[in-house]
Protein backbone atom coordinates (compact mmCIF):
# COMPACT_ATOMS: atom_id res chain seq x y z
CA UNK A 1 0.00 0.00 0.00
CA UNK A 2 2.53 2.53 -1.11
CA UNK A 3 0.01 5.02 -2.42
CA UNK A 4 -1.74 6.10 0.81
CA UNK A 5 1.66 6.50 2.45
CA UNK A 6 2.60 9.07 -0.14
CA UNK A 7 -0.54 11.06 0.59
CA UNK A 8 0.19 11.09 4.28
CA UNK A 9 3.64 12.31 3.49
CA UNK A 10 2.33 15.05 1.27
CA UNK A 11 0.05 16.23 4.01
CA UNK A 12 2.41 15.96 6.87
CA UNK A 13 5.18 17.62 4.96
CA UNK A 14 3.97 21.05 5.89
CA UNK A 15 4.43 20.28 9.57
CA UNK A 16 8.14 19.91 9.06
CA UNK A 17 10.25 22.92 8.68
CA UNK A 18 13.55 21.25 8.00
CA UNK A 19 14.65 22.07 4.49
CA UNK A 20 15.81 18.51 3.92
CA UNK A 21 12.23 17.33 3.95
CA UNK A 22 11.22 20.00 1.51
CA UNK A 23 13.94 18.97 -0.90
CA UNK A 24 12.73 15.40 -0.68
CA UNK A 25 9.23 16.53 -1.33
CA UNK A 26 10.19 18.49 -4.40
CA UNK A 27 11.81 15.42 -5.86
CA UNK A 28 8.66 13.50 -5.19
CA UNK A 29 6.72 16.15 -7.02
CA UNK A 30 8.97 16.15 -10.06
CA UNK A 31 8.70 12.43 -10.20
CA UNK A 32 4.92 12.63 -10.32
CA UNK A 33 4.41 15.20 -13.02
CA UNK A 34 0.74 14.83 -13.96
CA UNK A 35 0.17 13.59 -17.42
CA UNK A 36 -2.81 14.70 -19.48
CA UNK A 37 -3.48 11.24 -20.89
CA UNK A 38 -3.50 9.72 -17.42
CA UNK A 39 -5.81 12.40 -16.11
CA UNK A 40 -8.14 11.68 -18.95
CA UNK A 41 -8.06 7.99 -18.18
CA UNK A 42 -8.75 8.70 -14.52
CA UNK A 43 -11.78 10.81 -15.40
CA UNK A 44 -13.15 8.05 -17.58
CA UNK A 45 -12.43 5.46 -14.88
CA UNK A 46 -14.15 7.49 -12.20
CA UNK A 47 -17.15 8.03 -14.39
CA UNK A 48 -17.54 4.30 -14.96
CA UNK A 49 -16.60 2.94 -11.56
CA UNK A 50 -17.38 5.43 -8.78
CA UNK A 51 -21.16 4.87 -9.08
CA UNK A 52 -20.57 1.28 -7.97
CA UNK A 53 -18.84 2.07 -4.70
CA UNK A 54 -21.88 1.19 -2.59
CA UNK A 55 -22.01 -2.23 -4.22
CA UNK A 56 -18.25 -2.66 -3.75
CA UNK A 57 -18.41 -1.72 -0.08
CA UNK A 58 -21.47 -3.84 0.59
CA UNK A 59 -19.87 -6.96 -0.86
CA UNK A 60 -16.57 -6.36 0.95
CA UNK A 61 -18.40 -5.81 4.23
CA UNK A 62 -20.35 -9.06 3.89
CA UNK A 63 -17.24 -11.02 2.97
CA UNK A 64 -14.98 -9.57 5.68
CA UNK A 65 -17.55 -8.70 8.36
CA UNK A 66 -15.36 -5.84 9.48
CA UNK A 67 -15.70 -2.19 8.52
CA UNK A 68 -12.02 -1.32 8.57
CA UNK A 69 -11.03 -4.28 6.40
CA UNK A 70 -13.91 -3.58 4.05
CA UNK A 71 -12.73 0.00 3.53
CA UNK A 72 -9.14 -1.10 2.92
CA UNK A 73 -10.31 -3.66 0.41
CA UNK A 74 -12.50 -1.16 -1.44
CA UNK A 75 -9.61 1.28 -1.71
CA UNK A 76 -7.19 -1.42 -2.82
CA UNK A 77 -9.73 -2.81 -5.30
CA UNK A 78 -10.26 0.61 -6.87
CA UNK A 79 -6.52 1.05 -7.30
CA UNK A 80 -6.20 -2.40 -8.84
CA UNK A 81 -9.18 -1.75 -11.07
CA UNK A 82 -7.67 1.53 -12.23
CA UNK A 83 -4.39 -0.15 -13.08
CA UNK A 84 -6.10 -2.72 -15.29
CA UNK A 85 -8.79 -0.36 -16.55
CA UNK A 86 -7.27 -0.24 -20.02
CA UNK A 87 -8.09 -3.95 -20.29
CA UNK A 88 -11.75 -3.37 -19.50
CA UNK A 89 -13.89 -3.17 -22.62
CA UNK A 90 -17.13 -4.64 -21.31
CA UNK A 91 -20.38 -2.93 -20.59
CA UNK A 92 -20.86 -4.29 -17.09
CA UNK A 93 -18.68 -2.12 -14.89
CA UNK A 94 -20.34 -3.18 -11.67
CA UNK A 95 -19.73 -6.90 -12.26
CA UNK A 96 -16.13 -6.20 -13.27
CA UNK A 97 -15.46 -4.12 -10.15
CA UNK A 98 -17.19 -6.66 -7.89
CA UNK A 99 -14.95 -9.41 -9.28
CA UNK A 100 -11.91 -7.39 -8.22
CA UNK A 101 -13.43 -6.59 -4.82
CA UNK A 102 -14.15 -10.26 -4.34
CA UNK A 103 -10.63 -11.33 -5.25
CA UNK A 104 -9.06 -8.65 -3.07
CA UNK A 105 -11.28 -9.71 -0.16
CA UNK A 106 -10.29 -13.35 -0.54
CA UNK A 107 -6.61 -12.41 -0.59
CA UNK A 108 -7.10 -10.70 2.75
CA UNK A 109 -9.19 -13.57 4.12
CA UNK A 110 -6.49 -16.05 3.15
CA UNK A 111 -3.90 -13.93 4.87
CA UNK A 112 -5.98 -14.11 8.05
CA UNK A 113 -6.75 -17.76 7.44
CA UNK A 114 -6.77 -18.55 11.14
CA UNK A 115 -9.92 -16.51 11.53
CA UNK A 116 -11.91 -17.18 8.43
CA UNK A 117 -12.47 -18.93 5.09
CA UNK A 118 -13.73 -22.10 6.71
CA UNK A 119 -16.12 -20.35 9.02
CA UNK A 120 -16.85 -22.55 11.97
CA UNK A 121 -20.48 -23.37 11.80
CA UNK A 122 -21.81 -23.71 15.31
CA UNK A 123 -22.18 -27.47 15.52
CA UNK A 124 -24.15 -27.39 18.70
CA UNK A 125 -26.73 -25.05 17.26
CA UNK A 126 -26.57 -26.86 13.97
CA UNK A 127 -27.38 -30.31 15.27
CA UNK A 128 -29.76 -29.33 18.05
CA UNK A 129 -33.20 -30.87 17.68
CA UNK A 130 -35.23 -28.21 15.95
CA UNK A 131 -37.33 -30.41 13.70
CA UNK A 132 -40.30 -29.25 15.71
CA UNK A 133 -39.99 -25.71 14.34
CA UNK A 134 -42.67 -25.27 11.70
CA UNK A 135 -42.09 -23.35 8.46
CA UNK A 136 -44.71 -20.87 9.59
CA UNK A 137 -42.72 -20.10 12.75
CA UNK A 138 -39.56 -19.65 10.70
CA UNK A 139 -41.32 -17.26 8.39
CA UNK A 140 -42.70 -15.32 11.30
CA UNK A 141 -39.19 -14.87 12.69
CA UNK A 142 -37.72 -14.06 9.28
CA UNK A 143 -39.57 -10.74 9.50
CA UNK A 144 -36.94 -9.87 12.08
CA UNK A 145 -34.24 -8.11 10.08
CA UNK A 146 -31.75 -8.31 12.93
CA UNK A 147 -32.13 -12.09 13.02
CA UNK A 148 -31.63 -12.34 9.24
CA UNK A 149 -28.44 -10.31 9.49
CA UNK A 150 -27.17 -12.45 12.34
CA UNK A 151 -28.00 -15.65 10.45
CA UNK A 152 -26.31 -14.45 7.28
CA UNK A 153 -23.21 -13.43 9.22
CA UNK A 154 -22.95 -16.96 10.56
CA UNK A 155 -22.85 -18.58 7.12
CA UNK A 156 -19.60 -19.60 5.40
CA UNK A 157 -18.10 -16.91 3.19
CA UNK A 158 -19.20 -18.47 -0.13
CA UNK A 159 -22.81 -18.39 1.04
CA UNK A 160 -22.65 -14.80 2.31
CA UNK A 161 -21.16 -13.88 -1.03
CA UNK A 162 -23.81 -15.51 -3.19
CA UNK A 163 -26.69 -14.22 -1.06
CA UNK A 164 -25.39 -10.66 -1.24
CA UNK A 165 -24.89 -10.87 -5.00
CA UNK A 166 -28.32 -12.30 -5.65
CA UNK A 167 -30.52 -10.67 -3.01
CA UNK A 168 -28.85 -7.30 -2.71
CA UNK A 169 -27.36 -6.68 -6.13
CA UNK A 170 -30.04 -8.65 -7.97
CA UNK A 171 -27.44 -10.10 -10.34
CA UNK A 172 -28.26 -12.83 -12.82
CA UNK A 173 -26.85 -16.35 -12.47
CA UNK A 174 -24.51 -15.62 -15.36
CA UNK A 175 -23.10 -12.52 -13.68
CA UNK A 176 -22.78 -14.33 -10.35
CA UNK A 177 -20.92 -17.18 -12.05
CA UNK A 178 -18.43 -14.69 -13.49
CA UNK A 179 -17.87 -12.84 -10.23
CA UNK A 180 -17.65 -15.88 -7.94
CA UNK A 181 -15.68 -17.77 -10.59
CA UNK A 182 -17.84 -20.86 -10.57
CA UNK A 183 -19.54 -22.65 -13.49
CA UNK A 184 -23.01 -21.22 -14.29
CA UNK A 185 -24.52 -24.59 -13.41
CA UNK A 186 -23.19 -24.35 -9.85
CA UNK A 187 -24.86 -21.02 -9.08
CA UNK A 188 -28.32 -22.49 -8.59
CA UNK A 189 -27.20 -25.31 -6.32
CA UNK A 190 -24.99 -23.04 -4.22
CA UNK A 191 -27.76 -20.49 -3.85
CA UNK A 192 -30.10 -23.28 -2.89
CA UNK A 193 -27.70 -24.52 -0.20
CA UNK A 194 -27.10 -21.00 1.09
CA UNK A 195 -30.82 -20.41 1.53
CA UNK A 196 -31.31 -23.80 3.15
CA UNK A 197 -28.47 -23.15 5.61
CA UNK A 198 -29.89 -19.78 6.48
CA UNK A 199 -33.28 -21.35 7.15
CA UNK A 200 -31.59 -24.03 9.22
CA UNK A 201 -29.88 -21.38 11.30
CA UNK A 202 -33.14 -19.52 11.86
CA UNK A 203 -34.82 -22.76 12.95
CA UNK A 204 -31.96 -23.53 15.32
CA UNK A 205 -32.08 -20.07 16.85
CA UNK A 206 -35.82 -20.24 17.31
CA UNK A 207 -35.80 -23.62 19.01
CA UNK A 208 -32.91 -22.51 21.22
CA UNK A 209 -34.79 -19.41 22.33
CA UNK A 210 -37.88 -21.38 23.20
Amino acid sequence: MAAPLKIDYAFNAQDFESSAKIVKFTILKKHQEPDAAQEHELASFEETMLPHMDAAHNLAKWLLRNEEDAQDVVQEAYLRAFKSFSGFHGSNGRAWLLTIVRNTSYTLLKKNRAVDLTTTFDEEIHTAGHESVSPATILEHSENAELIKEAMDELPVQFREILALRHQEGLSYKEIADIAQIPPGTVMSRLSRARAELKEYLAARISKDK
Binding site: A3, A10, Q32, E39, Y78, L79
Partner: peptide, 8 residues
Protein backbone atom coordinates in the same frame (compact mmCIF):
# COMPACT_ATOMS: atom_id res chain seq x y z
CA UNK B 1 -5.68 7.55 -3.57
CA UNK B 2 -6.61 7.44 -7.25
CA UNK B 3 -5.47 11.04 -7.69
CA UNK B 4 -2.28 10.10 -6.01
CA UNK B 5 -1.77 7.13 -8.27
CA UNK B 6 -1.91 9.47 -11.23
CA UNK B 7 0.07 12.23 -9.56
CA UNK B 8 -2.47 14.99 -10.00
Amino acid sequence: SLRDAVGV
